[in-house]
């Protein structure tokens, strides 16, 4: 190659379309749906993947995701960073996440307010943290470490929980708001998690949403939940992601969109995954609500203005 005049640096992500997630419905990507999604006349607003599923070097999973990414906006959702861990962030795992983010240049990166790894190993579940000052400082430090490495802000997702901690001194909403303010992260509001946790802890979901900093929310998750009973025989909800979104959760979603305006909204369905048209039907329900209620919302102009 011959030397010529200096050129401006080539933007590395130019192989994929860039831009924010659109304020439309998206779906959690399942391998079995890839061909149907690519062939569908209905163009889903975006797709979201669990980062850990793409931490291999190559093969069919990456080929499928590259095909999706070349046509759709992408959100990368981590499930294994263990942001609430007492042992600190696993830097090897953070490097793996950074590789996935570099490779696919997603519009959004998000993780959970939870922990999943400890000295015994990786538990493959999102485990709860106490809401106190010490935990808050630790979570803020971990999110800052992640954002520094990824060189971008991430979104933090509110958890679904089944137990609480004696040592908690703050409400979940105050805890999350302060983490966002101190770390500069955005928020991912999982409305099914709000409904599940509110039922399990005897809160009113509307009060939770009233106290939640909606102005920091950049993405919404919706999913289905299962029912069980606690020691007293009372209803307890399990964040199962194995069925359609419940009517009560759709109602809360309408309230949030009325208040906050149209936001990228993910339909999650991770267990007993149905055929693509079933997931598409859920996405279209979300699209209809976004179209109907988004434009008239109280905060609706904020995204257009930014």
């Amino acid at each position: 190659m011959t030397q010529s005049a200096p050129k401006p640096p080539i933007v590395e992500n130019s192989r994929f379309p860039s831009g924010p997630l659109p304020p439309r419905a998206g779906a959690g990507l399942k391998t079995d749906h890839v061909d149907a999604i690519l062939a569908d006349d209905y163009r889903i607003g975006f797709l979201e993947v669990h980062a850990e599923n793409y931490m291999g070097e190559g093969g069919p999973a990456h080929r499928a995701l590259a095909a999706i990414r070349s046509e759709f906006p992408l959100s990368v959702h981590g499930v294994g960073l263990s942001i609430g861990s007492e042992e600190g962030i696993d830097t090897a795992h953070l490097e793996r996440l950074a590789r996935v983010v570099d490779r696919y240049q997603p519009s959004m990166v998000s993780e959970h307010l939870a922990w999943s790894s400890h000295d015994a190993g990786y538990f493959n579940d999102l485990l709860p943290v106490p809401y106190d000052r010490q935990t808050l400082d630790r979570v803020v430090a971990h999110i800052s470490q992640i954002q520094d490495r990824l060189r971008r802000p991430i979104l933090l997702e509110n958890p679904s929980t089944y137990v609480a901690f004696e040592q908690s001194t703050m409400s979940e909403t105050d805890f999350i708001r302060e983490i966002a303010q101190k770390s500069g992260c955005g928020l991912l509001l999982d409305i099914n998690n709000v409904f599940v946790s509110a039922t399990n802890h005897g809160w009113k979901p509307m009060n939770y949403l009233r106290d939640f900093p909606l102005e920091l929310v950049e993405e919404i998750h919706l999913a289905g939940h299962a029912e069980d009973v606690d020691d007293e025989g009372d209803l307890i909800l399990i964040d199962a992601h194995d069925r359609p979104v419940a009517d009560a959760v759709w109602k809360l979603y309408e309230t949030v969109i009325c208040q906050a305006g149209a936001l990228p909204t993910l339909i999650e369905w991770d267990n007993d995954v149905p055929e693509w048209p079933v997931l598409r039907r859920e996405a279209r329900l979300a699209d209809a609500i976004l179209d109907r209620l988004g434009p008239a919302s109280l905060l609706g102009s904020r995204h257009a203005a930014e």
Binding site: V163, H201, D230, E232, I236
Partner: peptide, 11 residues
């Protein structure tokens, strides 16, 4: 813990 003095075992 569980809310309202409930047991937490099943949870």
């Amino acid at each position: 813990t569980a809310p309202n003095g409930k047991k937490a075992a099943r949870r």
